[in-house]
Every structure is written in C-alpha cells, then in structure tokens.
Design a protein around this nucleic acid. Structure first.
Lengths: 201, 201
DNA sequence: TGCAAAACTTCAACGGATGAAAACTGTAGA
DNA sequence: TCTACAGTTTTCATCCGTTGAAGTTTTGCA
C-alpha cells in the first residue's frame, strides 16, 4: 500500500511546506514568490498546485487535523453529558492539544501564528477555514444532541463559543500578552459564553 | 466645499459600484474582469484601484456605514443600562436597519448577499471585514463599561454574540429558510448567547 | 521487460495588481 | 480672464498567482 510513489509524494509535500514556511519567515509572505518556493523544493511551480490550491493554503497544512480532533470529541458524547459539558470538553482538549503539540514545534507554531496575524491574505484564509470548521462542528453538535438541539441552536452554540474565544484571543495577542495570559483569556471567554452575557451584569 | 471635482468623484465611484454589481449579477464574480467593469463605468482599469483596493472591495462599499451605526449605539449607553441591555439594543437596531433599508433596495441587498455567500473570495473578504468590525465593537463596548469589563471580556462578549448570530444565520441560509425564519434564527442565537450555553441543558 | 497510469514539466495565456510618467482638468489667485 | 498648480486619470510596462493543454518521465504491475 505504501509504495514508493506514495512516499515520494509525502516527501514532496513536506519539502514544499518546509520551503514555503522558511521563506515566508525569512522574507515575508507577499515577498516570496511561488517560483522561489518551487525551486527550493525542487519541483516546477506548476507542481505546487497539485499539492495546494493556493499560496495561502500551504500555511494551513495541518488545520484539517485539528478540526477532526474537535469533531471526534463531539462524537464521543457520553450518555449523561450535557451540551455545555461536552462543549467544555471540546475546548479543553483543543487547548491541551495546543500545549502538548507545541512542546516540540513551539517555534514553528508561534512563527506561523505571527505570520497569519500579520498578513491580510492569510488572515482572510484563516477566517474562512475557521468558518467552515464551525459549520462542521455545528453539524457534529447537532448529531450529538439530535433531540435537544435544532440545527440553528447548534450553530448558535458553536458560533457563540468559538466566536467569543477567538475574539478574546485576538485582543490578547494584540495587547502582546504572554502565552499564559492568552490561555487565561481563552478560558475566561469560554466561561462568559457558557454563563451568558447577562452574567456580565 | 462641494466642488465639481468632488461631485465627479462621487459619480465615478457610483458608476463603478453599479457596473460591478450588475456584471457580478449577470455573469458571476470570477467571470467578470476589471476591464469590463472599467469599460462600463467609462474609466481606465487603473482608475478602479484609486477607488477600491481590490475587486472584492467594491461589493462591500457600504459596510463601513453599518459598523458605524453599531458603534454609535454602543456609545449611546444610558446610565442604568446593563451590558446585556446595551448589546440587545445593538442587535435590534442592526436588524431594524436591515429591514428598513431593504424596503427600497431589497433586490439589491438580497442579490449581494447571495453573491457573497456563493463566491469564496467574497466570503473570505466578508469574514475579514466582520472580524475587524468586531475588534472595533469590542473597543467601543469596553469604552461604554470601562470599569465593569476588561478589554478581553468585552471582546469575548462581542465575539460570542456576533459569532453565534453569524453562524445561526449562515445555517439558516444554507437550509434555504425564508427571510422571516432567518431573522427568527438570529434572535434565537442572540438569546442563547445572552442566556449562556448552559441554558441549553 | 514492457505497458498503463500517475506524477511532473514545459509552454502559453489570462487577469488582478502596482509603479511611473505623461496627459488632462478643476481651482484658486493674479 | 488667464495661468500655474494640485489632483485625477490614462497609458505603459511589469510582476505574479493561477490554470489549461500537451508532452515527458517515473512508478507499479502484469
């Protein structure tokens, strides 16, 4: 099953990712051309597009994995678990994953984060991916509580939770807080979404 | 103050908007070229870019106005008003405005909405604009409650409310609901954000 | 070993975006 | 009214991302 062909493709893909991220870091996103990326990865520029749909996409090569984790968590609802219990578990496991995964690749992740926040084109792409993920998460939440939640309510719940966390994290980043502060912000935002805005007085 | 030069610029701007939206409607966004827009508006393609930063931007010519309305509402907090009272007022006035404004330009607005939801490039741009608006709204909310809310809490509140409404509306649109249904979805989502996700059981 | 499919390259073209310089047009002041 | 200047627009050249088509190389398999 895992023939030479498959392995080669994986190697090419990784070479493109490595080359792209290194160049984006060194010279900025706009400033690096596809020709440069392709040269460093030793393929033609045309080949780039059989691995990624756009120059932006290469920066989000792993986002699918993280979404899948969240969806799996939603699918793993235990019988007695309430909507908010389950959502808390999704947030927690995502944060855990972020912390654990960052141990070896912290440099990389932080760098990529900064890149995405700096480059408008990447920001737009990130928001679109996040949005599409939320739609999938809403579906998964509805599947976990088919009787208790309507599709619209599921969407409202997912959007409210993630929307709050996202904006809180972004403001935290804008204020140049430490990683710890930002994680605290994320948790506080989740709390606010869970308790409702009325709890703010 | 309002010299010929100023009037001419406004007319050119409007001509570009009209030409672009008409063409987007007739042939789709990707399919219409800047050359066509410019020709119909009777300017050179280069001139397009002194009015709009990109082909996408022309579809969002009025978004700034709507954000300003919301920010003004936030700034108009009355002494006894709570955080949630004020936020409810923002949602209501935005919905009102949407309904009222759509009376004369309903065709236009609906068409533009469909366009944005269909074209990925426009969706990405819309999400970026919405995100930036939320940051401004969060600042305004913090300004309205400087003692009761931290900047991060303000962001969490705005993100949670708008995030929930946004996703609920999108799911409603995906399910092809009527305008009335979608407004109901929006209100239900706002309610959920206000009461908190725990209220979902 | 030879063949079919998959992957890659080359080539050409399109369209969005940008910089620079030339041409044009209101505007304000002599 | 004329003129000089500032603001606008056009023209021209160029870059780069993206895509289709056609041909070449590589890999897996009979």
């Amino acid at each position: 099953m895992v023939g030479l062909r498959e392995r080669k493709k994986q190697r090419t893909r990784q070479a493109l990712i490595d080359a792209a991220l290194r160049l984006f870091d060194e010279k900025g996103f706009e400033e690096t051309t596809l020709a440069e990326i392709a040269t460093q990865a030793e393929v033609s520029t045309r080949t780039f597009f059989s691995y990624f749909a756009s120059k932006e996409d290469v920066a989000f090569y792993d986002s699918e994995d993280r979404v899948r984790l969240a969806i799996e968590t939603l699918a793993s609802r235990t019988p007695g678990e309430t909507v908010s219990d389950l959502l808390v578990r999704v947030i927690d496991s995502s944060i855990d994953r972020m912390i654990v995964r960052q141990a070896p690749t912290f440099e990389d992740a932080a760098l990529r984060m900064r890149l995405i926040l700096t480059e408008p084109a990447l920001q737009a792409r990130a928001l679109l991916l996040l949005f599409e993920s939320q739609l999938r998460l809403a579906k998964a939440l509805h599947a976990a509580f088919p009787d208790r939640l309507t599709p619209v309510e599921s969407a409202a719940a997912v959007g409210s939770l993630i929307g709050g966390v996202k904006l809180a994290v972004m403001v935290g980043l804008e204020e140049d807080r430490s990683l710890d502060d930002i994680l605290r912000s994320a948790r506080r935002a989740a709390e606010i979404a869970l308790d409702g805005l009325r709890s703010l007085g």
